[in-house]
């Protein structure tokens, strides 16, 4: 207990070292978050920053929050972010070119001014002494928090609970799409296909005549051009189709040549 109290009320040299090292990393992580081209990289950098913040919470005597930060923020929320990034398209790179005239300059100006003012404000405040958490943690840290949450902040607690429920329901409402008509059965789909007469047999498979049988490589038509029909629509929308390189076509030609020669020989041997 005394060790806890000491950690909360004093700053050791170790903490100072920890602050300067991890603080630097946190700032770099934050900068990477806003500067990385790909969303997934940004998310990873942010997760790193958050873990460092969790360490800082622990160093400041907020053990409960430190653990919650790791479990809830880094564990749950950031995973949610990554999940959505995957859903939207993990490789889709964000163009960093600015489209709004003067937006970047204004943003830089405002950000710089705001940061200077904030820091000046903190420097201006007389925050020379601090009390430490020794006294309030005397009956146990989590017990102390619990006492506050369930007494003074009980209404806020209840209301945030309601907010969470509402948010969950709201998210479901937002993403849920009601089916307005009955799903067509297999039979109906088949009948429709015959009626339309566009594509009666199953779609051609990808990767035919390709160097390897991958779903992201378009199959080739007899004249050597790639067929749009052979690859999945979703992959095409994401721009994740690999091109059939001219090299592959060369290989194909060579292969045909070879087999023709062999067949010819076989014919000749006959």
């Amino acid at each position: 207990m005394s060790a806890l109290a000491a950690a909360a009320s004093t700053t050791s040299t170790g903490e100072a070292v920890q602050f300067w090292v991890l603080g630097t990393v946190a700032v770099i992580g934050a900068l990477c978050t806003i500067l990385m081209k790909k969303a997934v990289h940004s998310a990873l950098c942010l997760a790193g920053t958050m873990i460092i913040l969790a360490v800082f919470y622990l160093a400041n005597g907020a053990y409960f929050l430190g653990v919650v930060q790791v479990v809830v923020y880094t564990g749950a929320i950031m995973m949610l972010f990554l999940f959505v990034v995957m859903l939207v398209g993990v490789t889709a790179a964000d163009s960093l070119t600015e489209t709004i005239k003067g937006q970047r300059w204004l943003a830089a100006l405002c950000g710089l001014g705001f940061g200077i003012l904030l820091i000046a404000g903190i420097a201006n405040a007389k925050l020379t002494h601090f009390n430490g958490l020794g006294r309030v943690n005397s009956a146990g840290h989590v017990e102390g928090l619990a006492e506050l949450i369930f007494t003074r902040y009980i209404f806020a607690f209840e209301i945030t609970g309601a907010l969470l429920i509402t948010a969950a329901v709201g998210a479901m409402v937002l993403t849920h799409r009601e089916r307005t008509e009955r799903a067509a059965t297999q039979r109906e789909l088949a009948e429709r296909r015959v009626r339309e007469g566009v594509q009666l047999p199953p779609l051609p498979a990808p990767g035919v005549y390709a160097r390897h049988n991958a779903v992201d490589i378009a199959g080739l038509l007899p004249d050597g051009t790639p067929s749009e029909l052979t690859v999945n629509k979703t992959l095409r929308a994401r721009g994740q189709i690999r091109d059939v390189s001219s090299e592959a076509l060369e290989d194909l030609k060579a292969l045909e040549q070879k087999s023709a020669e062999r067949l010819g020989r076989e014919e000749a041997s006959k």
């Binding site: 400041n60 907020a62 409960f64 929320i77 925050l127 009390n131 309030v136 907010l163 948010a167 709201g170």
Partner: peptide, 26 residues
């Protein structure tokens, strides 16, 4: 919270997390 020697700051931070979670979901 550490400077003032009470836990209210941590409580607020806790609530911020909850609200942030709700916000992220929506």
């Amino acid at each position: 919270s550490r400077m003032h020697g009470n836990l209210d700051g941590q409580i607020i931070a806790f609530f911020t997390m909850v609200v942030a979670a709700a916000e992220v979901v929506v």
